[in-house]
Design a protein around this nucleic acid. Structure first.
Lengths: 139, 139
DNA sequence: CAAACTGTAATCAAAACCATTACACTTAAG
DNA sequence: CTTAAGTGTAATGGTTTTGATTACAGTTTG
């Protein structure tokens, strides 16, 4: 399986959205995701850079959403963690005497870019609020 | 990200489409992609399984398209090589006492599936003929 | 001041990828 | 019918990517 950072980040954001206003530590989040607190902290930094959350150091520190779940879409999270492109372009050098080889990089770049757009457009249509709503709420 | 198999396969198919009816060997294709013939042959097998090409063993062997480029879309190639999902779901076991943790797998599965659909739908709209048309034709 | 955190660097191990070697089998051509 | 040129396929190896872990300095609360 490839790069779970996006998956982890969505999990973290859903957890934060599930406890509105509450500051949650990386330890707790890591337990929910079932990974290491350092892995979580690295993602929290990325999410903070994207201004989706704020973090607090020191005792009782942790993270909290900066926007309402309704105002956060999955593309925001996607952009925050900057995963590698869905379709990687072959960067090796082309065979000079081959027309196809010489043009494939440009052609595939187009395919890769439009596919990336399609993914981002799709993710833009899914809000964090929608995901939180799918968690049974026994509160 | 999807691995380069899809990218390689598209390159191979474009090369085959560029020389209609001609049987091309894995050596030649490998040179165009700039990879190893064995890598190409493995992809050719996948493309054959998907009935997109036919292959010939023995001297002057190689591969050839079974359909017109206009009738082959990138999703056909995508399905042939079966890349890993664009969004991997976290398969680890959930933290029992955490509602979010217990439901994330289901929630992310939905996101992953719909994203995969979006990618496939996008690729369905791109034909091999369109790609070949982007190769300058000095013939 | 002590306890509980974050921020961050460094290191490790496992997994994913692709390249490569090797070789049996097939076919075309002389 | 023999040779050259291919495919089909397994096995192995090296590199890169990823995520886990350890370590520790700095921050904040009580």
């Amino acid at each position: 399986m490839v790069n779970q950072q996006f998956t982890f980040a969505v999990h973290i954001m859903t957890a934060l959205a599930f406890s509105p206003g509450k500051v949650i530590g990386s330890q707790t989040l890591a337990a929910s995701v079932n990974t290491n607190p350092v892995v979580v902290r690295r993602l929290l930094l990325a999410l903070r850079r994207a201004r989706l959350i704020e973090t607090f150091t020191g005792k009782n520190g942790g993270a909290r959403l900066r926007k309402k779940p309704r105002e956060i879409s999955l593309v925001d999270i996607y952009d925050a963690v900057e995963p590698r492109p869905v379709i990687p372009v072959n960067e090796r050098k082309a065979l000079k005497k081959c027309h196809v080889s010489c043009n494939m990089k440009g052609i595939m770049s187009g395919v890769a870019a439009s596919t990336e757009d399609a993914v981002r457009k799709h993710l833009r249509g899914i809000s964090l609020a929608q995901l939180v709503r799918q968690v049974p709420q026994p509160r």
